[in-house]
Design a protein around this nucleic acid. Structure first.
Lengths: 216, 216
DNA sequence: GCGGTGTTGTACCGTGCGGTACATGAGCGG
DNA sequence: CCGCTCATGTACCGCACGGTACAACACCGC
């Protein structure tokens, strides 16, 4: 046995370091045109090593997708944690986090991967199953306001808030017009009829939140 | 002079046919991994001809992006036309059109191009300048309800509706759960406080609307 | 010190890529 | 009928790609 490692997910420390660094690098450069050799050069290793650890280029990309998914999961955990208190406060806080410029590269990567997954790229397929569904239960609970809102309405609002946050993020990334996007988010949060605060417009959604920076 | 044609946009009929067909083909297969040769084969021509008409692969992709932009412009014209009547009716009609399954390939292409543009791919850069801005004036007018809504509020709601429609479209394309997405859209349209109808939640937004099908 | 196991470097392979050279027609003005 | 331009086909170039072969090295248990 010479060339490649196990095809599964053996998760050696070196591999994990490489993967995290590759994630950051791809967030900056985009996946589309990145060759193994370019990537390896940017990572300070050789394309040989990438194949050794990930089996193939597609294997590496699939692992990056899985990592993006995992980062989303972490963001989601943060949300459920933060959502203990007032709904509108949780919403605003989460939106503030999403709009943090330091997360922009990860979010651009998220949307690139999303687009590739929609086009049926096999290595990106892992993105799709959870990309909406995973967010719905906690968001639905958040919007239920402890039972004051009927479950079907809460579910629809959860889905709506998720979509809205992602759409606003797309806008923000494309235009960079932070003020205008914030105003739109504010509009959304102000639309809900209930008493105390607003329910949490742009609360949760989009990104592959936890943004690790410079990598390994 | 043997090989390539003018680099500009000379727009011969043959070229236009090729471009429209390439658009449809890329909508089905995705841009990411399409080589000139694959593309040409699917178009019933040779990669030589693509280079002759478009100068280079990037030139072709840039033209496809421009065409996508143009299709958006047509969709936008449809919107302004349809928006003459009641706001909520226009909104629902436009959303119905967006959700039409036959538009899905064009919309997937739109989001793939959007993602590539966000990652700085030069041939996709033409996407960004108008992708939000172009929709705002007519939407703002729509949401102003003839002056009943203050301009800043109308502007924020326009931006919000655009973002929401795109987010919901992303959801629909990923999950295929038409009923749930429709329910979320309905929620949005029902949120606005004003009298008569709802202002037009998912009214306008996303796609490269006018969907030409099987191409030349 | 030896044999393994995990890791890395160097060198290479075949393929398909984007792009070019050049010849060949089709259609038309003169 | 010539000559010109537009269009297209065939053949090729050099290159970078993903992937593999194989040898070497580090480290560890014994």
């Amino acid at each position: 046995m010479s060339g490649t490692r196990q095809p599964g997910t053996p998760s050696s420390p070196a591999r994990d370091r490489l993967l995290a660094a590759a994630y950051d690098l791809l967030a900056e450069r985009g996946v589309g045109e990145a060759s193994l050799r370019e990537l390896a050069a940017g990572l300070g290793t050789s394309h040989r090593m990438l194949i050794y650890h990930f089996g193939s280029r597609e294997g590496l990309l699939a692992q990056v997708v899985e990592l993006a998914e995992e980062r989303q999961r972490e963001a989601f955990a943060d949300l459920t944690g933060a959502a203990g208190g007032r709904t509108d406060q949780a919403a605003r806080a989460f939106w503030q986090r999403l709009a943090d410029p330091s997360l922009a590269p990860a979010e651009r990567l998220f949307f690139e991967l999303y687009g590739q997954a929609l086009q049926g790229r096999p290595w990106a397929a892992g993105m799709l199953p959870g990309v909406v569904e995973r967010w719905l239960p906690p968001l639905t609970e958040l919007f239920a306001e402890g039972g004051a809102v009927p479950p079907p309405v809460a579910a629809a609002r959860a889905r709506l808030a998720l979509a809205t946050a992602r759409g606003l993020l797309l806008d923000l990334l494309a235009t960079g017009d932070r003020a205008a996007v914030e105003a739109a988010a504010e509009q959304f949060m102000g639309l809900f009829p209930h008493g105390g605060g607003e329910p949490g417009g742009s609360t949760s959604p989009a990104g592959p939140a936890a943004g690790s920076r410079s990598g390994a």
